[in-house]
């Protein structure tokens, strides 16, 4: 029986374990991959995923379907859980290293596009949109979204005046958004 995310969510609020299990199975890999991208730790990623679904089950924080997709909400919960974890451990989860460099082979967006033929169409679209940004923009997006850097940390990492970080970031995010919208409308692209 197919159920929408909202139906599953209502079910788990009513205490139906099978609804939580189904939501878990649907989003486990996505959220785990995201947590892993932010923490580079399998152990922390597992803790984060558990934290997210524990919150769901314990009814902490309410999902409002009117405000957006369930997946977006779960991704935000995951992000907050990663940030929580790093702060309360007071360890630097988000150490910047060479692997985050956009020119590097291991950049997840690069490898997604170029090395794996059978990637989901969405993934190709997003990866392409990211790659269409210039290097500095890719870097600022990574530091902001995946390293959760503060404005002053971004400024230090990219050797920019703090005052310009926000405008550069907005510009980069604006481009990114447009790129995504364009490639979603334009369908396939040849790469």
């Amino acid at each position: 029986m197919a159920s929408t995310d909202s139906e599953l969510y209502d079910g788990l609020l009513a205490g139906d374990k099978s609804c939580l299990e189904r939501l878990y199975r649907k989003y486990e890999k996505l959220l785990y991959s995201y947590a892993y991208k932010m923490t580079s730790s399998h152990e922390k990623s597992e803790e984060v995923v558990q934290d997210v679904f524990m919150k769901l089950w314990q009814k902490k924080g309410a999902y409002d379907a009117a405000k957006g997709k369930m997946s977006t909400w779960l991704i935000t919960l995951t992000r907050n859980a990663v940030i929580d974890l790093s702060r309360r451990k007071q360890l630097d989860t988000f150490e910047y290293d060479e692997r985050d460099d956009v020119d590097n082979e291991t950049n997840p967006f690069n490898s997604t596009v170029e090395k794996t033929a059978e990637k989901h169409e969405d993934q190709k679209t997003i990866a392409h949109a990211v790659k269409s940004l210039n290097d500095e923009q890719q870097r600022i997006v990574t530091l902001f979204y995946f390293k959760a850097y503060s404005q002053s940390q971004i400024a230090a990492a990219l050797d920019l005046p703090v005052g310009t970080v926000k405008s550069r970031l907005r510009l980069a995010l604006g481009h990114l958004k447009k790129n995504i919208e364009r490639s979603e409308k334009g369908g396939t692209h040849d790469e």
Binding site: K29, L30, Y32, S33, Y34, Y36, K37, S45, S71, I75, P108, F109, S111, T112, T116, D122, Q123, T125, I126, A127, A129, V130, V141, Y145, L176
Partner: peptide, 8 residues
């Protein structure tokens, strides 16, 4: 962006 990440 998260949907575009490589899956682990």
């Amino acid at each position: 962006l998260v949907h575009g990440l490589e899956q682990v």
